[in-house]
């Protein structure tokens, strides 16, 4: 068997973490963004507001409501890796301007929505629903280190406890999306205070953002403790033992959960310049056998989180 010290590979992630901790029946809760949103709202966890949902082609006429809307985001309910997301930032006459600066007519938006309905962006090409939601305006602290789009914070939560995190910064190459494999920059975070350490771009370690050439390290994520607190509450809602939560920080509303991911990627290790397995092993040691995580309160989880940090850094 080939191993690398501390590194979590795809095989081990799938077998030991995803297959063993994420029960298949809970997948739809995170794979469908509308379901996620509904659950989050029920539990009072902030997320971008849902404007309306389009399930069928004949509902496309609902889009005439667009003329009253200045900024919004069109999303597929089951899209993955940021595909099919169309952020509209401005209304100019009868057209809408996207985050990339293109001008779209109503027909263009309709075409995009019908593509979503046909399953163009969904996992496995199945039919999908589209929805329009609140357009997040990113906190100004991220402006120097992101190119278009909204940077997000990926937090991995193992058995209810936050273990590792990174800030994902859109680039020109990623087309404003925050997915690392599409060319976004990942910046590891010090879990104690939410301050960025260096970055990674296309599997290469970097110090400066490739588009803005600003230093990535040393930025403090606002509302860091709120993010950790929300993260510690997610297990009770979704019952998934290994998930990635994507937070954005709105300049008006503060931290919002954009979406959850039951198969979070492994590049977070590159961004943090360390393997995941020491953290995972410490958590397993501290928690003992399953299913103790069901009985923990969010406060207790955060306490375990701090103990884990102490142990990792010792």
């Amino acid at each position: 068997m080939i191993t690398a010290p501390g590194l979590l590979g795809m095989n081990r992630r799938n077998i030991d973490y995803i297959l063993s901790n994420n029960s298949r029946k809970f997948y739809p809760l995170v794979d469908n963004k509308l379901l996620t949103k509904q659950l989050l709202e029920q539990h009072g966890i902030p997320c971008p507001m849902l404007y309306f949902e389009i399930k069928h082609n004949f509902e496309l006429k609902l889009l005439r409501e667009l003329k009253h809307m200045k900024e919004f985001v069109v999303k597929p309910a089951r899209g993955s890796a940021g595909r099919g997301i169309l952020p509209i930032t401005e209304q100019i006459g009868k057209k809408w301007k996207t985050a990339k600066g293109e001008l779209l007519s109503k027909e263009d938006v309709e075409y995009h929505v019908s593509n979503i309905l046909a399953g163009l962006y969904s996992l496995g090409g199945a039919d999908d629903h589209a929805f329009l939601e609140y357009y997040v305006r990113s906190h100004p602290i991220f402006r120097p280190i992101s190119y278009q789009g909204v940077p997000d914070i990926r937090l991995i939560i193992y058995r209810g406890i936050p273990i590792i995190s990174m800030l994902r910064l859109p680039t020109k190459e990623s087309g404003g999306r925050a997915n690392l494999h599409q060319g976004a920059v990942g910046a590891g975070l010090d879990m104690r205070d939410g301050i960025t350490i260096g970055g990674v771009h296309r599997d290469r370690l970097i110090d400066n953002h490739p588009d803005t050439d600003t230093k990535i390290a040393g930025i403090r994520i606002p509302f860091w403790n709120d993010i950790l607190e929300i993260g510690a509450r997610l297990y009770d809602i979704f019952k998934l033992g290994y998930i990635g939560a994507d937070f954005v920080i709105d300049q008006l509303l503060g931290p919002l959960i954009l979406e959850l991911n039951a198969r979070p990627g492994l590049s977070i290790q590159l961004a943090n310049r360390e393997g995941l397995r020491p953290c995972l092993d410490i958590i397993d040691k501290m928690l003992g056998p399953k299913p103790v995580e069901n009985e923990l309160s969010p406060e207790k989880r955060l306490r375990i989180f701090r103990e884990m940090l102490a142990e990792v850094n010792s």
């Binding site: 068997m1 080939i2 191993t3 690398a4 590194l7 590979g9 795809m10 095989n11 081990r12 077998i15 030991d16 990674v200 599997d203 290469r204 370690l205 492994l266 290790q269 590159l270 310049r273 360390e274 393997g275």
Partner: peptide, 15 residues
């Protein structure tokens, strides 16, 4: 099999 995939060694080479 929970070992690292060979291509992952290249992917995480920077580490």
């Amino acid at each position: 099999y929970t070992g690292i995939r060979l291509t992952e060694l290249f992917r995480f080479n920077e580490l």
